[in-house]
Design a protein around this nucleic acid. Structure first.
Length: 493
RNA sequence: GAGCCGUUAGCUCAGUUGGCAGAGCACUUGACUUUUAAUCAAGGUGUCAUGGGUCCGAAUCCCAUACGGCUCACCA
């Protein structure tokens, strides 16, 4: 790009050529290391506590992170996935020629070294190098050693540099991986079957969101990237697998911000003969278990707050909480027009294309959600917002649905699943009307799904958990981009 | 999609009222056999995001564009 980087790359390319000139492959096929760096340091600690143990030669490998040349001796730091260790190269040990070739090594190169571990005067665990092997020559300079990589855009676009130079970043992604593995373990132990359903769907259903559209060439038709796994998982329940879950990538064609990435990871769970009450218990147990297995405790720090996941979580009614925080009782406004009018007298700007459900949703996210720091269930949602959920007995306007919140974010959504095919058909029709009124996110009718349900679906509890947001909570990160390795950014140029 | 802020060396950052483009790290050369943000001496390094404009003169002022951040809108 500029002459400077060309310059550095050219110098390093020349150094690489020096190795070739000496008959050394700068990119050898393999290297046998006997220990990781943390294992090597552990061996040193063993030797120190047991003086009869003799120090054996061992080999480790890693990336050179710093280089302190002192003339006839040289110190380097190398880093592998397990940690960091100092290397001590001495001319008297290596011989003049081998020692002299150190000048062709650079920060960023990956090397293998063998020797014995010892501790320097200042207590630093160090490997006294008796031989080294270049494993990969680096042609570009690393970010600055002290400040690391700070530029947020570069951190996301060149995440590998972020991982190399900012150690704490790796821990976030280790925790993310652990959370998913612990979650899987939890579900498996509860007897749930992990299944996979199509990402490419002829019609995008199961949630209210705009889909991505793609094209299948040989079928010559468009497909949608899934916005939810719901309708396929329910078909599986109908098929007789009583407890299923899927952890999968979901795609929604919407704006990007600290809480939203166009692709994100969600777990959906369906259990026959369960309902939303039992799903609340499941969520409480699940999140507590994940927290304990990943942090060792029942609480996490999230910003200035401490969040305790110990059950039971607060179970509050949506209507009462909206009333409490906004002063509006949506029961008094049975249609969109009257609710909209009431909201505007409260000075809340309202989009006239929104139906009653969307208005209630807006009241929730604007007035209630920010207060839900402690783990909380909000119960009983308006029917307009939930075309796949079963009505609340005794109240035709509400469904048996909850959303779980923590840290001011929604982390789970669940309902007692609608299994009455005639009601389901009517709800789809209602959604179609909303769509004709201009609601682009209304649920699309899915005839194939209706046929499935007409064969008989057991009473079922369903649950969706936003894995990314759960990871944000556990790792105390306040942007999705910090917990997704490659967050979506605009392409440059 | 709207508003505000940002973009200067490979990295981290200064840059005064519009008057020669700067530092540290990194890099090159030299000294140094337990250093550790090693130290010491010397050296090279720029499309000041991009494109226009104002001006004798622009990193600096104005306009547009790109990308990013924050706030809002939409959403989980």
């Amino acid at each position: 790009m500029t002459s400077e980087i060309d310059n550095i790359t050219q110098q390093r390319t020349e150094k690489m050529q020096h190795f070739r000139d000496r008959g050394i492959d700068p990119y050898p096929h393999r290297y046998h290391r006997t220990h990781t760096i943390s294992q090597a340091i552990a061996v040193l600690a063993q030797q120190e506590s047991n003086t009869e143990m003799k120090s054996d030669s061992m080999s480790v490998a890693g990336r050179i992170m710093s280089n302190r040349n002192m003339g006839k001796s040289t110190f380097m730091d190398i880093k592998d996935d397990s940690g960091k260790m100092q290397l001590y190269f001495k001319r008297d040990t290596l011989g003049e020629e081998t020692y002299g070739c150190l000048k062709d090594l650079d920060i960023g190169d990956i090397i293998g070294v063998n020797g014995e571990v010892f501790r320097t005067h200042s207590g630093e665990p160090t490997l006294r190098v008796s031989g080294y092997t270049l494993l990969s020559k680096s042609l570009r300079p690393l970010p600055e050693k002290w400040h690391g990589l700070v530029d947020v855009e570069k951190r996301y676009r060149q995440r590998y540099l972020d991982l190399i130079s900012n150690d704490e970043i790796k821990n976030i992604f280790r925790t993310r991986s652990k959370i998913i593995s612990v979650l899987r373990c939890f579900m498996d132990n509860k007897g749930f079957l992990e299944v996979e359903t199509p990402v490419l769907q002829p019609s995008a259903g199961g949630a209210m969101a705009k889909p991505f559209i793609t094209h299948h060439n040989s079928l010559n038709r468009d497909f949608y990237l899934r916005i939810a796994t719901e309708l396929y998982l329910k078909r599986i329940i109908i098929g007789g697998f009583d407890k299923v879950y899927e952890i999968g990538r979901i795609f929604r064609n919407e704006g990007i911000d600290f809480k939203h990435n166009p692709e994100f990871t969600m777990m959906e769970v369906y259990e026959a003969y369960s309902d939303y009450e039992k799903m609340m218990d499941l969520v409480e147990q699940m999140v507590l278990y994940i927290c304990q297995e990943t942090t060792g405790g029942t609480t996490v720090n999230y910003g200035d707050d401490i969040i305790d996941f110990t059950p039971p979580w607060a179970r509050l009614y949506l209507r009462e909480e909206i009333l409490k925080y906004s002063g509006i009782d949506f029961n008094e406004y049975p249609d969109a027009a009257s609710l909209r009018k009431q909201m505007s007298t409260f000075g809340i700007p309202v989009d006239t294309s929104k139906g009653r459900g969307k208005l209630i949703d807006e009241l929730t996210s604007k007035f209630v959600e920010p207060h839900l720091i402690k783990p909380t269930f909000l119960l009983d949602y308006p029917i307009e917002l939930s075309p796949l959920a079963k009505r609340k007995p005794g109240n035709d306007q509400l469904v048996e649905r909850f959303e779980a919140f923590a840290g001011g974010m929604e982390i789970a959504n669940s309902f007692t699943e609608l299994n009455d095919p005639l009601d389901q058909r009517a709800r789809f029709l209602q959604q179609q009307k909303a769509r004709e009124m201009g609601d682009e996110e209304a649920e699309l009718p899915d005839e194939d799904f209706l046929i499935a349900m007409e064969h008989g679906m057991p009473p079922t509890g369903g649950l969706g958990v936003g894995i990314d947001r759960l990871v944000m909570l556990i790792t105390n990160q306040h942007s999705l981009r910090e917990i997704i390795l490659f967050p979506q950014l605009k392409t440059q140029e």
